[in-house]
């Protein structure tokens, strides 16, 4: 790997990191797990003057319970997310989605915060975060602010995180007892999603009482399939109801066409996969 040269700092607190970013100016960039950032440097698609490595900040790692929220530090690795009992119990959808990310090596280094900050439209964690109504805690020179998932993802690779800000944590409401499924469609096991559907549903006495559905790679940002959600809620759980409701999955999306899929095909996949995801989540 031969990136262009840059300065490097490894602060041990969020405050120090924020200061380093402020000192570094516009060309300062954050390094988390490096699984997206390092390849970009290697291909010289970016050449920051300063790299601020968050790897030394202990307070950014780990999962904790705060009242009715589960809070995940931005630097918690994908691997740790998949193994976490609190998440498995209360926010199963994020664990399920994280299991489909890349391979063991990447999951051992890549972080939840890094993946969400990177905001690749084909990335697997944004749609679940959107579906789950996550909140994003962002630290900057003026202290901390919280952004709702609906406002966080702005465009391809673009989020509400300002140039000199750091995503410190992601807060999830609890979905205890909800079923969850991340239905990922890709060509080979290690590849990115062509389309994927994040679904979590609450079924009580055979009736769907609540549903949250997010779509991956159906637009520049993750999309919430609200039409499907409302078509499901209140219905008796059955394959026909689910498949019928899933027909609304492509509403409000604007998928691209590329070598792996045309936009029509993506719309079709969104419907098929939504049906499968909801059935599995409810199953």
């Amino acid at each position: 790997m031969i990136p262009a040269s840059f300065d490097y700092v490894r602060p041990t607190s969020v405050a120090e990191a924020v200061q380093a970013l402020a000192d570094g100016g516009d060309d300062a960039k954050i390094l988390a797990g490096g699984q997206s950032f390092i390849p970009v440097l290697r291909l010289r698609m970016g050449d920051p003057s300063l790299v601020v490595d968050l790897g030394g900040i202990a307070e950014l790692r780990g999962v904790r319970e705060e009242g009715d929220k589960i809070v995940v530090g931005a630097m918690t690795t994908h691997h740790d997310v998949t193994r976490d009992d609190l998440l498995n119990q209360h926010v199963k959808l994020i664990s399920e989605a994280t299991k489909t990310v890349a391979d063991f090596q990447v999951r051992h280094r890549g972080t939840l915060g890094g993946a969400l900050a990177h905001a690749d439209p084909a990335g697997d964690l944004a749609a679940p975060a959107l579906a789950l109504d996550a909140e994003f805690v962002i630290a900057g020179a003026n202290g901390e602010r919280t952004v709702a998932a609906g406002d966080f993802f702005e465009d391809y690779f673009t989020t509400a995180i300002g140039p000199q800000e750091i995503l410190t944590a992601i807060r999830f409401p609890k979905y205890t007892g909800w079923g969850a499924r991340y239905e990922k469609f890709n060509r080979v096991a290690q590849a990115w999603s062509i389309v994927a559907v994040a679904a979590t549903v609450k079924v009580e006495g055979g009736t769907i009482t609540d549903a949250r559905i997010g779509l991956t790679n159906m637009a520049g940002t993750p999309v919430r399939a609200r039409g499907v959600e409302s078509a499901l809620v209140g219905q008796t759980m059955s394959e026909e109801t689910v498949r019928a409701a899933a027909q609304a999955a492509a509403e409000g999306t604007s998928p691209t066409s590329d070598a792996d899929a045309g936009s029509d095909y993506r719309e079709h996949l969104a419907k098929v996969l939504t049906g499968r995801a909801v059935l599995a989540a409810a199953g």
Partner: peptide
Amino acid sequence: DVASPGAGLGSTAKDMPEGGNL
């Protein structure tokens, strides 16, 4: 004629704003 997505690693990531937020 567009490479598939992948962390902005696609060889011709046409639709990606220059470097994204990178």
